[in-house]
Amino acid sequence: MNSDLRSELHKKAEQAWPDLELLIGWQAGYDDLHTTPVFIRDSAEISKLIWNPWCTQNLAVYVAKHFAASSGKDDKKIGVCVKGCDSRSLIALLQENLVARERFYIIGMPCKGIVDLRKLHALSGAARILSVQVNAEQVALKSAAGVLHFPLDEVLMRKCRRCRYPNPLIHDVLVGDPLTPRTDAHEAYNDVAAIERLSLQERLAFWQGELDRCLRCYACRNACPLCVCQDRCIAETRDPKWLTQYMHLPEKFMFHFIHALHLAGRCTECGECERVCPMEIPVALIKEALNKITLELLDFEAGLDPQRVPPLLTFDAGETGI
């Protein structure tokens, strides 16, 4: 399956290449379980492109920067491969006029879900993973302790199990056939609802416990395709000095709270912030809670319609109830 899609990807990339100055995709990483982004500037390198359930990075994170740096000479475009969730980030960038649609060639990848390495490691325990085979809906994990089989669904990332948009919402070409979404919007906020069921004190204790691990490495911020002011972040400026350099809880709490608030009505739930966290803090939950609020309050979901303006960047004089 994957090899068919991979050759289809190569074919479609070849076809598009004459119009492209750059193509951003995934290539094999340092082992079979890791992929790494690749920036193709020569058609000979198209063969490096891969597509499989390990292609985890949201390549929209590179888009704004390459757009700013690109001259657009000879009307050449920037090609980018996107999964369903990644395409929403791209739309969110379009909604905020941070990129221009006509400068991009979007290769859409209908996606059955991305494997969560942490879940694989949890299943293999202390035994080193030797190889992992994904066949249709089944996973075979071979470790020093033996071979384990389980359904693919069990090891997908949290965001994939609640994914409503497996098909890219914006694309110039699709690789593979469109897929059927798995859940409705109601179930999508189950994880948020679980926290909401806790008492106020329990919620505070939960977040204090989780956020206390934060190293302030800012990976969650830098991996976010919509955190576009990261070099001028309140977390690091000294003037005004919103945060000290201490590793106290209020500083970490404040950073994550503000990071999330800046994404209210903008976050497309690609889950990168949570995936990249070396301390495995569920930071995406905070943004999901905000999205639930903006959906209920302002009837808005980020990254769906390129024409709509994010609700906190505009107003409605006539609205009531707030």
Partner: peptide, 14 residues
């Protein structure tokens, strides 16, 4: 809008 979103967000964080 901002203030209402914030007000609803605060309890989520405890």
């Amino acid at each position: 809008r901002r203030l209402e979103v914030l007000k609803r967000m605060l309890p989520f964080m405890g």
